[in-house]
């Protein structure tokens, strides 16, 4: 019996997604037993709703990181969609779906530009996406001028507020996104190619993988998912403002790494990012419960990420 438990633990230690999932279960169990109200259905549902946003941003981030890149513009793309969508939604369309489509097209286009810069200009992705974020920041100041914009788009509000069958529609969206991304990574040629690209770009290119096209597609996808998350956030908040997307940049990267995906690319899966996002939201919630000062909260958050990394994110020598 004891041996069996040990062997399960050993398997988990070698399987980062499972390990992260176990950690989430452990934290939820411990918190439900010790904190009043934590284990209530409403609270857990709320945590999942928050995780859905991070999970969707991190979906694109996972794909890009697996390929050996990184997208530092997701925060800015979220802000762009959250601010532009209310302004661009045609009032003639009562469903609001056309506004949704326009916003997603813009987000995807921005991602595509990231990919084009990285692929054609050979700018390192970290710089390309950073420069893109700087551009967008400037752009937003012209468009929004610093004030918040409220949303009336029906589709967006439904996405952010509705709970068909008691499940928040944001969580449903996340489940759909997860299914799509997992299929892409594990069941399509593109998934196998992006993992190969992340582990050895040169050998992949010489094996006939079109690096340029892969980059364009994946950065566009990252832009698309960031835009989707931006719409969800807008629906949950009912208004968009400059800076609304900023917190999601670092958390999306942290969720990916906590899920056991190598930051250097070539190894990992979205199956780890999912519990990674939940773990991140849960720990943040717990830190808020402790009622500490902002400084202490920040320290606890950083130390937790570091501690979790020690368990799951070890890398070989570079």
């Amino acid at each position: 019996m004891e041996q069996k438990a040990v062997s399960i633990l050993k398997t988990a230690l070698r399987n980062p997604p499972l390990l992260t999932l176990l950690l989430v279960a452990l934290v939820w169990l411990a918190a439900s037993l010790t904190l009043r109200g934590f284990g209530a259905y409403g609270h857990l549902r709320y945590l999942l709703e928050l995780s859905a946003v991070i999970g969707i941003v991190a979906a694109g981030q996972t794909l890009v990181i697996l390929m050996g890149g990184i997208d530092l513009s997701v925060g800015a793309i979220i802000t762009v969609t959250a601010i532009l969508l209310p302004l661009l939604s045609p009032s003639a369309d009562p469903t609001g779906l056309s506004g949704l489509a326009i916003a997603l097209a813009i987000a995807t286009g921005i991602g595509f530009l990231n990919g084009a810069g990285a692929a054609y200009l050979r700018v390192p992705p970290i710089i390309m996406t950073l420069a893109m974020a700087t551009f967008l920041q400037g752009l937003l100041v012209i468009v929004a001028g610093g004030s918040a914009v409220s949303v009336t788009n029906a589709a967006v509000l439904w996405l952010g507020q509705a709970r068909p069958l008691g499940v928040p529609s944001g969580v449903m969206l996340w489940i759909a996104v997860s299914a799509v991304v997992l299929v892409i990574i594990h069941r399509t040629p593109l998934g196998a190619r992006l993992l190969a690209l992340g582990a050895n770009p040169l050998a992949s290119r010489l094996s006939g993988i079109n690096v340029t096209r892969s980059m364009l597609v994946l950065y566009a996808m990252s832009g698309f998912f960031a835009g989707l998350a931006g719409i969800l956030i807008l629906g949950m908040n009912r208004q968009g403002y400059v800076g609304i997307g900023e917190p999601y940049l670092l958390t999306s990267i942290a969720a990916v790494v906590l899920g056991g995906t190598s930051i250097l690319g070539g190894r990992g899966t979205y199956a780890g990012t999912i519990p990674g996002a939940i773990l991140l939201v849960t720990t943040t919630a717990l830190i808020t419960v402790v009622n500490a000062s902002p400084g202490w909260r920040s320290i606890m958050f950083g130390s937790l990420i570091l501690a979790l990394l020690l368990i799951s994110g070890r890398e070989g020598r570079r």
Partner: peptide, 23 residues
């Protein structure tokens, strides 16, 4: 010593250091 990637360690470290400054 622990073989963790610098980009992630300093990302987590930025929260800790920023927190200490705030305290």
């Amino acid at each position: 010593q622990l073989r963790l990637p610098a980009i992630i360690v300093t990302l987590a470290g930025s929260f800790i250091i920023g927190g200490i400054a705030l305290i």
